[in-house]
């Protein structure tokens, strides 16, 4: 296991609302992640898991604190630079896939590259597509795919730009158990084989136990953080 620090979170807080109705979704959260780690974040709903993930992914803004990904304090970037940073350094996977219905599988997968005006490297794309088992589905539209397949496309999309960190928000929350384990397997493959840093939010104990490190959140705080394998 390497020792390169990919992510550093410092005193992260997020408060929704104002005054009496204010809700602390994140309360002074700090931790670091090294390259290649596979972290599962568990906790009851409303514990701040999703908020944390969104803030790590640069799609929501913290009330205070810093998120440093590969040395870049991402909330010091302006909105445009942050968007470009997201497209190159962060891969996000959502529970509801969030694919674009009018784009086919290949376009959806290569979207971050296309947004950058780049042409995807066919060889690399083929590798990823084969691993995801989507090689015969490249021209399909999302609504022609099963949920598991759609989620695989979104994994491909998160991976295509070779990001510094991959974040998954309940990636199996909408899938049956067979598809769930498939998705987790795939995430693990990329984590192990490509040393892709991965943070995943889940309710599922079995999925959490497959991670290298499990963080438990409650009321916006990390209450346990243990390495279960290295």
């Amino acid at each position: 296991m390497s020792t390169i620090e990919i992510l550093r979170v410092e005193n992260l807080s997020k408060i929704y609302g104002k005054g009496e109705t204010a809700v602390k979704a994140l309360d002074d959260v700090s931790f670091t992640v090294t390259k290649g780690e596979f972290i599962a974040v568990v906790g009851p709903s409303g514990s701040g898991k999703s908020t944390l993930l969104h803030i790590l992914g640069g799609v929501d803004r913290p009330t205070s604190g810093r998120v440093i990904i590969e040395g870049t304090d991402i909330y010091k970037l302006d909105e445009t630079k942050l968007a470009i940073f997201r497209r190159r350094q962060i891969g996000l996977i959502y529970q509801f896939y969030n694919l674009i219905p009018v784009l086919n599988v290949k376009e959806n997968m290569t979207l971050p590259l296309l947004l950058d005006g780049r042409t995807p490297d066919e060889a690399e794309l083929t590798k990823i597509v084969n691993t995801l088992g989507l090689s015969d589905r490249l021209d399909y539209l999302p609504n022609q795919l099963s949920g598991g397949q759609q989620q695989r496309v979104s994994i491909g999309r998160a991976l295509i730009s070779n990001p510094a960190i991959m974040l998954a928000d309940e990636p199996t929350g909408n899938l049956d158990s067979k598809n769930s384990s498939e998705i987790i397997e795939l995430l693990k493959v990329f984590n192990k084989k490509l040393k892709q840093t991965l943070i995943i939010i889940t309710h599922d104990e079995r999925i959490a136990l497959q991670a290298d490190r499990v963080m438990t959140m409650k009321d916006g705080r990390i209450i346990t953080d243990e390495v279960i394998r290295s």
Partner: peptide, 10 residues
């Protein structure tokens, strides 16, 4: 929004 999350700029 999805585009934004995969890094589309304003």
């Amino acid at each position: 929004g999805m585009l934004s999350s995969v890094g589309a700029t304003k």
